[in-house]
Simulated scan of single mutants.
Amino acid sequence: MKIAIMGSGGIGGYFGAQLAQKTDNDVWFVARGPHLQAIRENGLQVKSEVGETVVFPAQATDNPKDIGPVDIVVFAVKLYSVDEAAEQCRPLVSEQTGVISFQNGIGSEERIDDILGPGHAIGGIVYAPLAIEAPGIIRHTGNLARLTVGELSGARSERLQSFVSACRAAEIEASMSENITQVLWEKFVFLASFSGITCLTRQPIGFTQEDPFARELFEHALREAVAVAQAEAIMLDDGFVEKTMAFAMGMGANAQSSMLTDLQNGRPLENAWLSGKIVELARKHKINAPVHQAFFTAMKPFEAVT
């Protein structure tokens, strides 16, 4: 397959590196600035407790026209960059190209199809603590690194089956879902709440695991988000909150949201697309969501800090 990584940060850089290093797929990285320069000069490096990967030389550019049409675009940019990045994808997209959206929130797939035309967007979920440690270097913490993808129609398309097969050949834990919208919402409910509590406390999840007040606040946030999901006709499994609490309480104490990492490093935040989206939808359905409103409001002064 010919694969373009649009956004070669934590997610795109990590999974792209595995595909480039461990398979014979034609993998291209779209990056910019010092990160692109470092990749060109020293290769793309992944530092992980489960093994390090170096792709050198790496096919890297800041101009998608250098790449041309591909089979799959791994679309892994921040939520506030979706529209701009989707426009930049035009040279990568042919009639059959799939654009797998690995975003934290909900609704990116619709924005991609609005820009590139219907039928290109594919839903994607990544479960992995990943971040750019330094230009050209991706840091993977722990041993969790898996992804789930699915056509919005639920079809088991040839393009998606080929991508999943490529991932498995690269020793990536990958699966396909026939109900990706539900899976996207499940992660969104968790991530909006997880990002909110870690950013509000300025602490990794270990603080919430140990502090009963923070733990209660996190559970209230989950219940608010579940109520919003139900109002949007997304029926989450019975016991979803309890299962999600158990998952969060079992995470490594140093695990933190990518939004907290961005906050600590003075980068723009995805606040408006996480707790902000919960608040927006809660108001639409006349649901009270005071915890997410507090999360959203507390982070507003830092949303655009650079």
Rank of each mutant, 00 (worst) to 15 (best):
T244E: 12
E224K: 00
V226G: 01
V241A: 06
D238P: 12
L236T: 08
E242I: 08
F213W: 14
P212A: 12
Q230F: 14
T244F: 03
E216R: 13
D237H: 10
A233R: 04
M235Y: 06
G239C: 02
D211E: 07
D237I: 00
I234Y: 05
L217S: 15
I234C: 01
A231N: 01
T208H: 06
D237T: 06
A231T: 01
E216V: 01
A221M: 06
E232S: 05
E219K: 14
A231G: 05
F213P: 03
D211H: 13
V241G: 09
E210H: 06
K243I: 08
V241E: 07
F218R: 01
A231H: 02
A227F: 02
R223C: 04
A214S: 15
A233T: 13
V228H: 08
E210R: 12
H220Q: 13
M235H: 11
A214W: 07
Q230V: 04
L222D: 06
Q209C: 07
Q230R: 15
G239A: 12
L236K: 03
D211S: 14
D238R: 14
D211F: 10
A221C: 10
E216G: 08
I234D: 01
A221Q: 05
T244W: 01
V241I: 11
P212S: 15
V226L: 07
R215P: 09
A225W: 07
A227T: 00
F213D: 14
E232N: 15
T208W: 05
M235W: 14
Q230D: 11
A233Y: 12
E219C: 04
T244K: 08
R215V: 00
L236E: 10
Q230T: 11
A221S: 15
D237Q: 11
E210K: 13
D238W: 02
E219F: 01
D238G: 13
A225I: 03
T208V: 06
E242W: 09
L236A: 13
I234Q: 12
D238M: 12
A221H: 03
G239V: 03
A214R: 00
F213A: 11
F213S: 10
L222Q: 05
Q230G: 14
E232H: 09
P212M: 02
L236R: 11
E232F: 02
D237P: 14
R215Y: 02
E216L: 13
H220D: 15
V226T: 07
F240P: 00
D211A: 00
T208I: 10
Q209H: 04
A233H: 09
Q230K: 12
V226H: 04
F218L: 15
H220S: 15
L217G: 06
A233L: 12
G239Q: 05
A227V: 03
L222S: 08
A214K: 02
L222I: 11
E219V: 00
A233V: 06
